[in-house]
């Protein structure tokens, strides 16, 4: 089996616009490798070339220069798309279909056999937690539900590589956490995930490796820990430490040739606080409800 899920070698994409054929360079000389069974984050501001890169990976655009291979096959080969599941940014689906019909439609398009299609549709709807709303029309779904049914259609044919473009855009923190849980489940199941997101906190928690694009160029890439760790510094989290101890510790550090640069109280993230408080409120509400029914 090929260990590289995506291999991009020196791709450049120029768009020609207007009658005079003015060239607009969307991405330039991008080199990227996504290993099998890793979660890879593609970061960058708007217009940095993320969507163009994704479209080339999906075979929807041809690169002006360079090559892109998915599991060793050229990305524009139609057969390769059987191994890819894609959730577009701010997905919009046929509003006249129910969630179940929509996922089934894409399952059949992907060539799933009639005998297994219903089971696969049920499984992917269950994975994204949409069983209760599966018979409702897609037009009545909230943003979070659209993202989840979008994930279900991306996963229904059991692809090896899943590409998610802003999977949590416009979704509340709890929905975003649910999506993050699904992505972790996908990794546990041996899938490779390429994820584009502006929510850097989520990318940091989820991804094994990231790449940062800016103005169409790859400006940084590597393992998240390697990129974020300040290797010349260390932090110690100490409980119940008094002022004398702090003075003594500072002295020891200086004696050993170090320098204490900062003392701060560890903080939880706002996201963490929000999720905890909502969970607490939810369980209190449930308990109250149970008491009232008794």
């Amino acid at each position: 089996m090929n260990d590289t899920a995506i291999q991009i070698k020196g791709i450049t994409k120029d768009f020609i616009s207007g009658f005079r054929g003015v060239k607009l360079r969307a991405i330039e000389d991008i080199h990227l490798e996504v290993a099998n069974n890793e979660i890879y984050g593609l970061l960058g501001p708007n217009g940095s070339g993320k969507s163009t890169t994704i479209k080339i990976v999906l075979g929807l655009l041809r690169a002006s220069k360079g090559t892109c291979h998915i599991y060793g096959q050229p990305s524009h080969a139609m057969s390769v798309r059987k191994s890819i599941g894609y959730l577009p940014e701010a997905p919009y689906f046929h509003s006249y279909l129910s969630g179940y019909e929509l996922v089934r439609y894409y399952a059949r398009i992907c060539g799933l056999d009639r005998k297994i299609v219903n089971q696969r549709v049920d499984d992917s709807i269950e994975l994204v937690g949409m069983q209760e709303a599966k018979n409702r029309l897609v037009g009545t779904y909230s943003k979070g539900m659209l993202q989840r049914i979008g994930l279900a259609q991306a996963l229904v044919h059991d692809p090896k590589l899943v590409i998610l473009d802003e999977p949590t855009a416009g979704v509340d923190p709890m929905g975003a956490e649910a999506v993050a849980d699904i992505i972790r489940t996908l990794k546990d199941r041996g899938k490779t995930v390429l994820i584009c997101s502006h929510l850097l906190g989520q990318i940091e928690d989820l991804c094994d490796r990231v790449a940062i694009l800016h103005r169409g160029q790859l400006i940084r890439s590597g393992r998240v820990d390697d990129l974020l760790q300040q290797t010349d510094r260390e932090s110690y989290i100490v409980k119940n430490f008094n002022a004398d101890g702090r003075v003594a510790m500072k002295k020891v550090i200086e004696e050993q040739g170090g320098r204490l640069t900062n003392i701060e109280k560890p903080r939880r993230s706002l996201n963490e606080l929000f999720l905890k408080e909502v969970e607490l409120s939810e369980s209190t509400h449930l308990k109250k409800g149970n008491k009232e029914t008794k």
């Binding site: 929807l60 894609y86 689906f93």
Partner: peptide, 14 residues
């Protein structure tokens, strides 16, 4: 316009 074509053409559809 609604980009459903993007989702469809990302599948094995010519």
């Amino acid at each position: 316009d609604s980009r459903t074509a993007l989702t469809l053409l990302s599948k094995p559809v010519h």
